[in-house]
Design a binder for these strands. Structure first.
Lengths: 231, 231
DNA sequence: CATTACAATTGATATATATCATCGTCAATT
DNA sequence: AATTGACGATGATATATATCAATTGTAATG
C-alpha cells in the first residue's frame, strides 16, 4: 500500500534522498556488482558521528534514525530514513567524517558503496552532479523550515510538526505503530521527554490524537496543522 | 589589513562562500564581461525571500545580512556576507526562488550573474561542481552546529556564540563597530532584543566585554568560549 | 514465576525566557 | 526649535519549559 503520491512535505525535517535512480543503467549495474551488503538488528548503530566515512550507504530494507549527538545524553533527530534512501552526509568532499549518527529502528539491510566509487559517478555524469546539488539544496530548504520551527514555535507546535512528519512523510497513514520512544519524539521536537508526554496527553484529551505506547492515530490532522501554524 | 588567515570558524553560522576562485581563468574572464554591477545603499534589500531567483549574486564591496523572514516581525539571521562572497541559495536547481532575504548593512556593490550562465559553469567544469558540493556540505555542517546551539544552549551561550562569530569570523578583531542593531543580534541568537540587552549588560558587568551602542570590545574571549560551551 | 531493566507517567517545583509598558536618547525631518 | 521615529534600556510580570523525584507499567531475561 503505497501512499507516497499523497506525500505532503512538512518541510522541517531533512528531505528524503533516493537519488540513485538518476544514474545511468550502466552505472547502476556496476554498483550492483561491487556493493557490500550488511544486516543490522534493531537498535544497532549503522555508523557513528565522528567516525571516518569510507562509504556511502543505501538503506535497502528497514528504517533508521539520523541524529546529532550533542554532549552528554543530548541528541537531535534530524530525520528518519526509509528503504531506498541514501545515507551520505556532509563529510563528503570535505573532511570525510560522519557528522551524524545513524541507528536502525527496525531490523535493516544496508548497501555500502565506497566513497571513491561514488566520487567517480559524479565526475563521469554531470547530470548526476546536478541532481546531487539539487538534493543538497532541498535539504537546505528543509533546514530553514526546521530553524523556523525551533526558533519561533513553542512546544505544542513543535510536537505537532513531528506528528505531522511521521504521519505524512514517514508512515503515510493517520494510524501507525512506531519503534520511536518518547525520548525520540522529544529529540525530534527539541524538548524533554516529560514535556512530550504531557503534550501528547493534552492532544489526547482534546481528541486530536489517540496513542498508547507505540501506537498512534491522528484523528484531526487539521487541528494539528493549525497548532503548528498558530500556537 | 587582512586577518582572514586567522579565521576561526565558530561553526554555528552558515559558512562563507568565495568559491568563484575555483573557476578556470577563461570562465572568470567570461564572467567579468557579462556581469551586471549594482549599487545598494545601507539598509536596502538586495533580494527578498519568495522572489524569483534569476541571478546568482557576488558581493563585491560592503556587507550584507542574510535572514529568514518568519511571519510577522520575526526573523532569523543566517549569516553575514562580506565582499568576495557568493549569494546563491537553495533555490538553485530546485524552485529558482529565494529562500531568504538579503539586506545591505553598509553601502555595497554587487555583481549579478545570470542563473543560466552559472549553470553552464557547473556543467562545463566538473571540478567546479565538486567545489560547489563541498561548499554546500560545509554549510550543512554549520547548520548542524547551529541546531545544536539553538536546541541545547540557553541564552547566555547563544549570545556568546554570536559575539564569537562576529569577532572571529566577521570582523576578525576583538574590537569592532557594527551596523547590527540589538534586534539583529537577537535574531542571530534566537531570542528577544530585551534578553539580548540584559545579557550584554551581564557580560559587561562581568568584564567579559565592553559595548556602547555600536562599538564592541571582547575583553575575555576565553570566558565567552566557556559560556558557549558550559552554560 | 521472579527479576531486572528500561520506558512511560505524574506531580511538585525551579528556572529560563517572553511579554508588556514605559522612558530616555539620539538623529533625522519639518 | 519642535516633532517624529527608531533604537536602547529597564522593571514588573506572566508564561513556557526544564528539572527532580517518585511511581507505575511493560517487556525481556534467567
Amino acid at each position: 500500500m503505497d501512499h507516497s503520491h499523497n506525500k505532503i512535505n512538512t518541510g522541517s525535517f531533512d528531505t528524503s534522498g533516493n537519488i540513485l535512480k538518476f544514474l545511468t543503467p550502466n552505472q547502476l549495474n556496476y554498483l550492483n556488482e561491487i556493493r557490500h551488503v550488511v544486516k543490522f538488528n534493531k537498535g544497532e548503530n549503522i555508523f557513528k558521528q565522528g567516525a571516518p566515512m569510507p562509504h556511502i550507504i543505501v538503506l535497502e530494507k528497514g528504517m533508521a534514525k539520523v541524529f546529532l549527538e550533542d554532549g552528554a545524553n543530548r541528541s537531535i533527530v534530524l530525520r528518519l530514513v526509509k528503504s531506498g534512501e541514501i545515507l551520505g552526509g556532509p563529510g563528503f568532499f570535505t573532511d570525510y567524517k560522519h557528522h551524524f549518527s545513524v541507528t536502525a529502528l527496525e531490523d535493516s539491510v544496508a548497501h555500502f558503496i565506497e566513497i571513491s566509487v561514488f566520487k567517480k559517478l559524479i565526475q563521469d555524469n554531470s547530470d548526476f552532479a546536478i541532481v546531487l546539488i539539487a538534493y543538497l539544496n532541498k535539504a537546505h530548504i528543509n533546514f530553514y523550515n526546521r530553524l523556523k520551527v525551533i526558533s519561533h514555535k513553542q512546544m505544542n507546535g513543535r510536537l505537532a510538526n513531528t506528528l505531522i512528519y511521521l504521519s505524512n512523510t514517514i508512515y503515510n497513514s493517520s494510524s501507525f505503530d512506531t519503534n520511536l520512544t518518547r525520548q525520540d519524539l522529544a529529540d525530534m521536537s527539541s524538548m524533554t521527554k516529560e514535556s512530550t508526554i504531557r503534550i501528547l496527553k493534552d492532544f489526547k484529551s482534546s481528541g486530536i490524537i489517540e496513542c498508547s505506547n507505540n501506537h498512534f492515530e491522528i484523528n484531526d490532522q487539521e487541528a494539528l496543522a493549525n497548532i503548528l501554524e498558530n500556537g
